[in-house]
Every structure is written in C-alpha cells, then in structure tokens.
C-alpha cells in the first residue's frame, strides 16, 4: 500500500470519526444530510459484499466493517435517537434519492467489467459514491450557520477521493495490471463535485471567517 492510499483511507476514516463525534458530543445532527448517509450505506453494502467471498487483508476487512457499522450508527441516531432525531433538518434535506440511484443503476448495468450480480452492484457502488455527497452539499447551501465540524467533515470526505487519485496515478505507474478506468473516471467526477466547496472552505479558513456557501 502506498502513502497516498493510506492517507486517503485515513482521511476517509477521520471524516467519519469527526461526524460521529459531532453528533454524539452536540447531541445534534443539524446540517447533516440523512439522504447522503443513507446513500453511503447503500454504497458500502453493495461494494463490500465481497467481505463474504474474498479475503484481502485484515486491514481491508476491519476498515470495511468500520465504514459499515459507523454509517449505520449515524443513520440509526438520525432516525431513531430520541434527542438527535429532533435536530434533523428534515424540511431542508429534500434531494430525491431516485435522481441519483436510478441513473447510477442504469449506468452500472450498461458499463461494467462483467455482467454478474456482484460486479454490477460493485460498479453501481462506484458510480453512486461519486454523487452521494450531492444531498449534503445542497443542504449545506441551505444552512445559514455551518458549524466547523460539519465543514471539516465534508472537507475530509472530499479530500479522501482526491488522495485516491494520487494513489491511482502511483499505481498506474508502478503496477502493470492496474487499469481501472471506470473507477478512475468516477473518482475524478467525485472530486470535481467538491471543488466549489473546497474553494469556499479554504477561503473561509484563510480569512478566519465562518464557512458559508452562496446559494
């Protein structure tokens, strides 16, 4: 494993830890999109089906389980925790799942490495991950007072795929049999989606101002 991949994984892990801490410490999920969290749950379930069929490494297995358990914990808190669920911005979090899920499903059926259930679901998870942040970004735009932890969460989540791109460049150059075009294109799309957010995040950080996204 190269340093970019490890940094990407750690950033991804850190983003989830930040989110868990924020919700748990403040007893509030204000500014967090349940739709994005549920889309990530779908992404992880579809991608990590190979937990049952293919052992890669202890690291790999443990990380997959952490991502699954933490995402379902967040969803559980946002839906059912008696204090936290009240703080969910239900009226603002209006993005429609089907606008993201259906195109990704069609694309996965058409563009995949192999037409098998496992492979199509895996490819679907790659496409869906690229766009799953959109409900969260829309919600952030509608939130007047974005708290620091929510901003940091989205920043870390965006950084993770950007670091993966460096990892892919590195692997492309060092590993002969490593040509994952579908993954690369999706990862680049995923990172591009964050560019606007990155711009305002860095600007607010440099000017020492509170983060806000223009509507």
């Amino acid at each position: 494993m190269n340093v970019f991949r490890l940094a990407g994984d750690m950033t991804h892990l850190l983003s989830i830890i930040v989110l868990l801490l924020k919700i748990n410490a403040t007893r509030s999920c204000r500014g967090i999109s349940l739709k994005t969290q549920e889309l990530y749950a779908v992404v992880f379930v579809c991608r990590y089906l190979d937990l049952f069929t293919n052992f890669i490494s202890l690291y790999n297995t443990v990380m997959k389980i952490i991502f699954l358990v933490s995402t379902f914990t967040i969803i559980y808190w946002m839906r059912f925790h008696k204090v936290i669920r009240v703080t969910y911005d239900r009226e603002q979090d209006t993005f429609r799942y089907q606008f993201l899920v259906l195109p990704c499903l069609v694309l996965a059926l058409l563009l995949n490495n192999e037409f098998t259930a496992m492979e199509v679901l895996w490819t679907f998870s790659i496409y869906l991950e690229a766009v799953a942040i959109l409900p969260q970004l829309v919600l952030l735009q509608r939130t007047n007072n974005i708290d620091n932890l929510t901003g940091n969460y989205v920043f870390l989540l965006g950084s993770y795929r950007a670091l993966y791109i460096l990892n892919w460049v590195y692997r492309f150059m060092t590993e002969k049999h490593y040509r994952q075009y579908l993954v690369w294109i999706s990862g680049i799309v995923q990172t591009i989606i964050y560019i606007d957010f990155f711009y305002y995040y860095i600007k607010s950080w440099r000017n020492n101002e509170k983060l806000s996204l223009p509507a």
């Binding site: 991949r5 994984d9 991804h12 190979d50 293919n54 890669i56 490494s57 790999n60 990380m63 997959k64 991502f67 490495n113 192999e114 895996w122 993966y164 990892n167 049999h177 490593y178 040509r179 994952q180 075009y181 579908l182 993954v183």
Partner: peptide, 10 residues
C-alpha cells in the same frame, strides 16, 4: 474490455 480487476481498495 478491462482485465479482471484487483479489488483491494475501499
């Protein structure tokens, strides 16, 4: 068509 790809990433 791609080769059978290595799925060791998360």
């Amino acid at each position: 068509v791609q080769e059978k790809i290595l799925k060791d990433e998360l």
